[in-house]
Computed example of a mutant assay.
Amino acid sequence: MIFSVNSVEQTTAIGLELGKLLKSGDIVCLTGDLGTGKTHITKGIAKGLGIDDHITSPTFTIVNEYDSGRLKFYHFDVYRVSDPDEIYAIGFDDYIFSDGVSVIEWANYIEDILPNEYLHIHIEKNLDKGENFRSITLKPYGERYDYIKELKL
C-alpha cells in the first residue's frame, strides 16, 4: 500500500488513521532518510491511540513511554544504537512483546533483532515533485497486520 503526500499534515494524517486501527501488541517499524517524516507519522499514531501528550523523538533515551491513550505506546528511536546489546539492556523484548503498541524509528538499524511479524513503513522524498512530496509505503510482515487494508484516507 503506497500513499503520496505533499505536506506534514497529510503525513501525520496517515499515522492518525493507522493509530485508530492498531491493536495490542502491534509493532510498527519506520525507515527513511533524515527529515522524511518518521516522527510525524509517529505523532499521528499517538493521536490515533488517543494520546495528547507532546511526542518527541527519544534520540538519546532510545524509548519514550506513554500510557494516556487506549493502549500503552512505546516510541523507540534507535538511530544512535550501535550494538544490539544496548537495546536489549533497556528491556527491548519486554516492550515489543507487551500489550502496548511499539513504534521503532530507524528500524533498519536493528533489523536482525526484529520479530517476524511487524508493519513496515518506509518514507522517501520525491524531490522531483517538490520539497514536501513523500511516498509512504506500508508493508505488513505476517497475517497479523492484514487489517491495514482497512486504512482509508
Rank of each mutant, 00 (worst) to 15 (best):
R70P: 03
D26V: 11
Y74T: 03
D128S: 14
F76W: 09
P58G: 11
T61A: 14
K20Q: 06
V78G: 04
F133C: 09
D99G: 13
L153D: 01
D33N: 11
G44I: 10
F92K: 04
G35S: 14
T56Y: 06
T39A: 11
K23H: 13
E150P: 01
L151S: 04
N108R: 03
F133E: 02
N6R: 14
E117L: 06
G142W: 10
R80I: 00
F3H: 09
G37V: 15
Y145D: 05
E124L: 11
I2N: 15
I27A: 01
N6T: 12
I123T: 12
L34P: 08
S135T: 13
H75R: 07
L30P: 08
H122T: 07
K38I: 12
G130F: 07
N126H: 07
T42A: 15
T36S: 14
P58D: 10
E9C: 02
I104Q: 09
Y141V: 01
M1H: 13
F133Q: 04
G142K: 10
G91N: 11
V81M: 05
F133G: 02
I148Q: 05
D93K: 12
Y88V: 06
A13L: 15
T36K: 13
I2P: 02
S24Q: 11
L22F: 04
E111R: 11
Y95T: 03
S24G: 08
N108W: 00
I2H: 07
